Structure formats: C-alpha cells, structure tokens
Lab assay of single mutants.
Amino acid sequence: EIHIRTNGEEQARKVYKMLAKRNYDVKIEQHNGQWVVTAS
C-alpha cells in the first residue's frame, strides 16, 4: 500500500488520476487538513 501526502486538493487529484490509470485502487483522505492519497 502506498501513502502519498500532498499539499492540496489539486495535487491530490493529479496523483489520484495518475495512480488510477495504473489500475491501483485509490482513495483520497484528509488527515489534519492534509490530503493523503492511498493506493493499493
């Protein structure tokens, strides 16, 4: 499982799309105001 911390919604969405293209199961979560993308 991969966790990627991003500094904002826009970046989180870019990372989300990139990983989704590679057939990862991707989730975006917010932790303490930080956007974290989780891929498995």
Results as ranks from 00 to 15, higher is better:
Q34E: 11
R22M: 15
V36H: 07
W35R: 01
A12E: 00
K14R: 12
R13Q: 06
N32I: 03
E1K: 14
T38L: 10
T38P: 00
L19T: 01
Q34P: 00
S40F: 10
R22P: 02
V36P: 00
R22T: 07
Q30R: 10
A39M: 12
N7T: 12
H31Y: 12
R5Q: 06
N23W: 14
I4G: 01
G33M: 04
K21S: 13
A39F: 14
N7G: 07
G33L: 03
K27A: 06
Y24P: 04
K17V: 11
E1Y: 15
V37N: 00
H31D: 10
N7V: 08
N7S: 11
M18Y: 14
Q30M: 10
V15L: 14
A39S: 05
V15W: 14
E9Y: 15
E1V: 14
M18P: 01
K27Q: 07
I28H: 00
L19I: 02
K21I: 10
K21Y: 06
M18L: 10
N32K: 06
Y24W: 12
E29A: 09
K14G: 03
A39T: 07
N32P: 02
K14A: 09
K21V: 08
V37A: 00
I2A: 02
N23I: 04
A20L: 15
K21C: 15
V26D: 00
T38S: 07
R13M: 08
N7W: 11
T6Y: 10
K14T: 05
R22V: 06
A39Y: 13
H3L: 13
V37Q: 00
Q30A: 06
I2K: 05
V15H: 03
T6Q: 02
W35M: 01
W35T: 01
N23D: 07
E10M: 10
N7L: 10
Y16N: 04
M18S: 09
K27H: 07
R5Y: 15
V26F: 01
A12V: 01
K14F: 08
Y24N: 04
I28E: 00
Q11P: 03
N7K: 09
K17W: 10
K27E: 04
E10N: 08
M18A: 12
E10H: 08
A39V: 15
Q34Y: 15
Q11H: 11
R13E: 05
A12Y: 01
G33E: 05
G33R: 03
V36I: 13
T6K: 04
Y24M: 10
K17M: 12
L19K: 01
E9N: 03
L19V: 02
G33T: 04
Q30H: 11
M18F: 14
Y24A: 05
R13H: 05
A20P: 01
E1N: 09
R22A: 13
K27N: 05
V37P: 00
I2W: 13
Q30E: 11
Y16I: 07
G8L: 12
N23H: 14
N32V: 03
E10L: 12
I4A: 02
N32F: 06
T38V: 14
Y16M: 13
H31E: 11
H31K: 11
E10G: 06
K21L: 10
H31N: 09
V26H: 01
T6D: 01
I4K: 02
S40T: 12
V37E: 00
I2Q: 02
A12F: 02
